[in-house]
Simulated assay, not measured.
Amino acid sequence: MYPSGFSTMYGEKPKNVGETRPERYYSTKIQFGGFGHLDVFEEVERKEDLVTIGGNEIHTLYSPQGKLVVLNRGKNNTGLAVCSLCGFATDYTKPFSHKNKFGKDCPNGFATNAALGHMFLSDVLKLRFPNKVIDATSYEDGKDKWSTLLYAILEGASDVLGISRSDINGCVDWSDGYPVLILFDEASGGAGHVKRIHQNLESVLKGAFKRVDGHCGCGKETTCYGCLRSYGNQMEHDVLARGLAKSYLEWLLSSQHSDVSQKLKEVPEEKKLTKEWEETLDLLTSDFYDLAWDMVKEGTINAPDEVGYPLVSEETGVMGYEAEMIWHDKKVAVLTQEATPECRNAFKESGWNIFVVNEMDKDHLLKELKARSGGKKW
Rank of each mutant, 00 (worst) to 15 (best):
L127W: 04
V194K: 03
P95A: 08
G79M: 04
S164M: 04
K132W: 14
F96E: 09
K145T: 02
P107H: 02
S164P: 05
T90D: 13
F120S: 08
I197K: 00
C171I: 08
V133W: 00
K145S: 01
V172L: 14
L85P: 00
D123K: 03
H118K: 01
C218D: 06
S138Q: 11
F184P: 09
V124E: 00
C83V: 09
D173M: 05
G219Y: 05
C106D: 05
G214R: 05
D135W: 05
D213E: 09
H98R: 10
S97P: 00
Q199C: 10
K210Q: 08
A111S: 15
G189P: 00
A187K: 14
T112M: 06
L150T: 07
E140K: 08
F96Q: 11
D141K: 15
P130M: 15
A136T: 14
E155F: 05
V172K: 05
A89Y: 13
G189H: 01
G217E: 14
D135R: 14
G190A: 08
S138I: 09
S147M: 12
G177Q: 03
W146P: 02
G189W: 02
K143L: 08
F96I: 02
K210V: 09
C218P: 08
S84D: 09
N108K: 10
F110L: 10
V82P: 00
F102L: 02
S138E: 14
A157T: 03
K210F: 06
R128E: 08
L150K: 13
G109A: 13
T148R: 07
G117C: 01
H215Q: 05
W174C: 00
K206V: 05
L161E: 14
V212K: 06
L150G: 06
A191R: 12
L85N: 09
L154F: 00
G190E: 02
D91L: 09
A81P: 11
V124L: 00
D105R: 09
V160R: 12
D141N: 13
S166M: 13
H198G: 10
S147Q: 05
V172I: 12
L116F: 13
N77S: 14
